[in-house]
């Protein structure tokens, strides 16, 4: 996830785009260290010391990690749980609605390999996900 997200943030730096995290790690000190170590350049809300049981994820009914919402410029929820190439497509469409044409390309060194193969990596499941209870 991180390399794809970092790539998005870099490519869209001068566009009306923001990647906002809601971090659900319990320990603030260790997540700060990870942010530095893994070069996580985007801002995150902290879900609090209860981790996945924190107030933000609870209010939003999030039970799987990661969970993605894509909002348009009006703040309207337009997509949910899009990953990889699907996320790129969602972002491209929403920026196009604002008259911003972008073409996203990612380095072949992304962990999932080609852009096509990232499409298959959608939804929950896979090593990186977790759930409450």
């Amino acid at each position: 996830m991180y390399p794809h997200e970092r790539s998005l943030v870099e490519q869209l730096a001068d566009k009306p785009f923001a990647l906002i995290g809601v971090n659900s790690d319990r320990d603030l000190e260790s997540i700060r260290a990870i942010v530095k170590e893994k070069n996580i350049t985007w801002r995150s809300f902290w879900n609090g010391p209860q981790g996945t049981g924190g107030p933000i994820s609870t209010e939003w009914g999030v039970t799987g990690w990661p969970t993605i919402y894509v909002l348009d410029a009006e703040g309207k929820i337009r997509y949910k749980n899009v990953r990889g190439a699907d996320m790129d497509e969602a972002i491209t469409k929403l920026l196009a609605e604002m008259g911003q044409e972008v073409e996203l390309t990612h380095a072949a060194s992304l962990p999932t390999g080609s852009k096509q193969s990232t499409v298959r990596q959608r939804r929950r499941g896979g090593g990186g996900s977790a759930s409450v209870q």
């Binding site: 996830m1 997200e5 998005l8 566009k15 009306p16 785009f17 923001a18 990647l19 906002i20 995290g21 809601v22 971090n23 659900s24 790690d25 603030l28 997540i31 700060r32 942010v35 801002r43 995150s44 809300f45 902290w46 879900n47 981790g51 996945t52 933000i56 994820s57 209010e59 939003w60 999030v62 990690w65 990661p66 969970t67 993605i68 919402y69 894509v70 909002l71 348009d72 410029a73 009006e74 703040g75 309207k76 929820i77 996320m87 972002i91 929403l94 920026l95 604002m98 977790a130």
Partner: peptide, 30 residues
């Protein structure tokens, strides 16, 4: 999207609505 009024990992207060006018990917991660 309902408002999120919280703090970032450095303890700085901010809001989801601060990003109105932008396409936002909101990523619940850990």
């Amino acid at each position: 999207a309902p408002e999120i009024d919280g703090e970032d990992l450095d303890g700085q207060a901010f809001k989801l609505s601060d990003y109105r006018g932008k396409v936002v990917v909101l990523d619940f991660w850990g």
